[in-house]
Structure formats: C-alpha cells, structure tokens
Design a protein around this nucleic acid. Structure first.
Lengths: 99, 99
DNA sequence: AATTTTATTCGTAATTTTGCGAACTAAATT
DNA sequence: AATTTAGTTCGCAAAATTACGAATAAAATT
C-alpha cells in the first residue's frame, strides 16, 4: 500500500506505515513498554498479554518489519528493544504531521 | 478492537484508534491537507485523489468516526474541517507516546 | 416538474488482518 | 542421545479493510 503517484509524498507514506504499526492496541502496548524501559524478553510479554504466543510473535514481526523494534537472540530467549533511530524518525514525522 | 482488560489503558486504546485512522495514505493525506489549510470540499479532494468518489466517502467517514474531522453541509457540497479539539488530543497522546 | 450537482449508501469482490493451535527449530540441560 | 525451554512458522478460519460502480438522496437550477 504505497501510493507513489506523486500525490502522496514518501514522507506521508512512511508516516502512514508507522501509524499502521501503532494501530493495534497490543503493538502499541509493546512499543510503549519498550520506550519506557530498555528492553524485554518475548516471554515477559507473553506472560502479561492475554494472547497466544504465536499471535504475539506475529505482532512482534510486524513491528520489526516496520523498523520500530529489533530482536537479539540470547538463546534460548529473544530480547526485544526499540530501534532508536527509527523511533526518532517517527517522533520527527508525527511531530511534523500533527503540528 | 478495544482491549479493556486493564492491561491496556484507555489512553493507549485511544492512541491506537487515532493511529488506525492515520494508517492509510489517503486518510493521512486528507488530514495533512486539512491541518495546513482551514477546510476543503469533498469535491476538491475527489479531483486530486486517484480513487473513486465512493471510496473517498468511506475514508472521510472513518476519519469522522475517529473524531478527527467534521463535515458541514453546504448544499449541494460538503465542507470538511479538522476537529481541532481531537487534533489537539492526538498531538498530546502521540507526544506522550513517542517521548 | 424535470434536471443538474454533489455526495452518500448499498451490494459485492478481493485482499489483508487477526488469532489460534499444531508442528517445527535451535540451543541448553539432563 | 533424549528432554526441556523459548520462540517462530504453518495452516487455517473469521473478521475487517479497501475498492468499485450502481443506486439513491437532497437541495439548487432550469
């Protein structure tokens, strides 16, 4: 869903992509948590959130695809952290957009 | 899609709702336009945007349902404007969230 | 009264999203 | 070598989203 028809700018497309990643309460919760602390394990999230592990995995994958988080393998666990660069980019884009 | 399971706060749910409204390039474009000028007619948007009028109507309806815009009937046209109160709320929520 | 203008709603189809449990992977432990 | 632990991927179903054209609505103009 990338309107490159010169009507919608690349900046707008990127903002929409970030918004989409944030548009599900579970994903927003995960981002919120990661923004407030350093990192967390997938298992910690799985204990808190009332969804199947496979569903959580999918949401984490979407956040990764959107570039907002990254996962480091610490066998047998996976530690997730914010992607700080893209988080800053999101700040910038939404700040501009909502001005 | 409103997780009122005390795990996800009402603030987070509201932020996710706004994000969802912003998650489509066409809707983002409309919001961007309305934020930069005062108001505009549905017909103006229809001329600019490469989608059917009925599709545009649906997107405008979603933005209205999310509380981000409002339409005033000026027969036979409809003038759309930002809902400034909720726009401010969105600013606040995203500012907090992305901090 | 018939027509024109502007926009919405309806009906429908294609695609995407969301969610689950079962099956699988990969490393660590027994 | 078998088991345990932590997560992901697969296969599937239900629901939501996106999009279109046709039909409709409502006021203004002819």
């Amino acid at each position: 869903m990338n309107w490159e028809n010169k009507i919608i700018s690349e900046e707008q497309n990127q903002t929409a992509r970030f918004a989409k990643a944030m548009s599900h309460p579970i994903r927003l919760y995960v981002l919120d948590l990661l923004a407030k602390q350093t990192c967390c394990y997938s298992g910690d999230l799985s204990e808190i959130l009332p969804i199947a592990k496979s569903t959580l995995s999918q949401h984490l994958k979407e956040l990764k695809n959107a570039g907002l988080i990254q996962g480091e393998i610490e066998p047998p666990k996976v530690k997730y952290c914010l992607n700080r660069d893209n988080w800053k980019l999101a700040q910038k884009l939404f700040n501009n957009f909502l001005r």
